[in-house]
Write a protein that binds this DNA or RNA. Structure first.
Lengths: 110, 110
DNA sequence: TGATAAGTCAACCATATGGGTGAATATTGA
DNA sequence: TCAATATTCACCCATATGGTTGACTTATCA
């Protein structure tokens, strides 16, 4: 998987309210089991399990299995990719603006 | 539409490669027409038009119509919401970690 | 005025997504 | 050993998504 697909996965995973809530819960509570996470939502355990899988595939959550219990933990590092993308956009934007400025200034010279 | 839905829209809009490319083009080139944008992609004008609509509904793009031409421009401000969300997550994370640290230190006391 | 150009709208298609249920698997504990 | 627990897997369903084509509207300009 290339960087672009990875970024798409992260953004798509983060683009769902339930999944963002799961992430928030993990960030504030630390590692939690699937059932424990599911108790916060009005949807089946299975649906929550599927959301967790999406987060996991985006690298936003890691799993530690102890016996029959799966402990999920938030992994914020991948979100840096989205910040990096935004920062890149802003830098391109600034480049263009400064180029425009230079153009206007040189026109003033004439 | 509440903040959460708005954030979902932004993240979903940004979660597609084609749409991110459109945003990048607009950031580096400034306002561009739909046809001009579409020329960069191997898909129909209509498909690009639909992607633009998604970006527009997320507030990531604005439209200025002059006669039959529609000029699209990038709007980076909504992306700050995603940064704010990330920042909030990080601050919750730090809160928990410092609470943990305090706990461990007080245990050392005993 | 009439052809062409720029876009959107509407309908369609295949696949993805978010939800559900029931069965299967693996671990625990009595 | 056997029942209960934790979780995933395999389907199923409705709706969303990303793409297509064709028709429609509005401007432009020869």
């Amino acid at each position: 998987m290339n960087d672009d697909e990875r970024l798409s996965r992260i953004l798509k995973a983060a683009g769902d309210t339930t999944r963002r809530k799961i992430l928030t819960l993990l960030v504030q509570e630390g590692a939690l089991r699937v059932t424990s996470l599911a108790s916060h939502f009005e949807m089946s355990l299975n649906s929550v399990s599927k959301h967790i899988k999406v987060l996991e595939e985006a690298g936003l959550v890691t799993r530690r299995t102890l016996g029959r219990e799966h402990f999920m933990a938030a992994e914020l590092e991948p979100l840096k990719r989205t910040e990096a993308w935004f920062a890149e956009l802003k830098s391109i934007w600034d480049l263009r603006l400064s180029a425009l400025e230079t153009m206007i200034l040189s026109e003033d010279d004439q």
